[in-house]
């Protein structure tokens, strides 16, 4: 109802004028904010462990199919353009840097720097998807270079190339869906940073999303040589 109660959340008469990150208190089941921060961070790491295991399934499929059908996979990597893979790798590396720099900005209380870094990361994520979609997914789908039953590319060298496309589309597709989720998370972070939610005493969300984004980057660090470089 009143402006005071919407601001403080408790409706107490003595309203705390400090920004959110200054007056932030850990949830009551934690000893203090540091305890909470460490618990959240470890939770994020355990989640990242499951992410790594998710992608390891695809790496395993890649290894098995490559051993069984080396020709199809050698042809497969020649269908891809190293340039786009390289550009996308650099885009993701840059975004990883800006995330790490953003965490640093939050730690030293540089809110403008934090917002700038989040924005650059966002743009990098969108650029990654745009490059992938416009120059890779689009043309390949048009040419019928699709997995399994959707395959309709008439000039294949090797009868097992649909398998290669299966690995390519599923691995990069799940990675791209992680990038989309990451973009959503960065929009959320930006909105919160806009409300001055983050500062030296409270930046848990920035740290957690940052770790997630780095894992997305690491997955691409492996996908890039596996798909584009190993001929």
């Amino acid at each position: 109802m009143s402006t005071i109660s919407t601001d403080s959340g408790h409706g107490g008469p003595a309203q705390d004028e400090r920004p959110y990150h200054e007056q932030y208190h850990a949830a009551h089941h934690f000893r203090n904010r540091d305890h909470e921060f460490d618990a959240v961070k470890m939770g994020v790491w355990l989640f990242l462990a499951t992410e790594i295991l998710l992608f390891s399934g695809m790496f395993c499929a890649y290894a098995v199919f490559r051993m069984l059908h080396p020709e199809a996979f050698i042809n497969g990597s020649h269908y891809l353009d190293v340039e786009y893979g390289l550009i996308n790798t650099l885009v993701l590396l840059l975004s990883s840097y800006t995330v790490a720099a953003g965490v640093r900005c939050a730690q030293v209380g540089d809110l403008r720097g934090l917002k700038r870094n989040i924005l650059i990361t966002l743009v990098c994520g969108v650029a990654f998807l745009a490059i992938k979609g416009i120059f890779e997914y689009g043309p390949k789908a048009m040419q019928g270079k699709l997995p399994g039953v959707f395959f309709s590319y008439p000039n294949a060298h090797d009868p097992n190339e649909p398998l290669w496309w299966g690995v390519y589309w599923v691995a990069t597709g799940i990675h791209a869906s992680h990038v989309i989720v990451g973009i959503g998370l960065f929009i959320w972070l930006y909105l919160r940073a806009n409300k001055k939610h983050f500062g030296p005493r409270h930046y848990t969300a920035v740290e957690g999303v940052g770790l997630y984004w780095h894992i997305v980057d690491i997955v691409w660090i492996f996908l890039f040589p596996m798909l584009y470089l190993i001929h």
Partner: peptide
């Protein structure tokens, strides 16, 4: 062609630089 003869007639394929693959298959397979 893709089943047996790999020699000719694939000028339209983009996998232009494909080389014979020895793969990482180690032994028996």
């Amino acid at each position: 062609h893709d089943d047996h003869d790999h020699g000719h007639g694939h000028e339209h394929s983009d996998a232009g630089k494909s080389r014979p693959g020895h793969g990482i298959t180690i032994t028996a397979l």
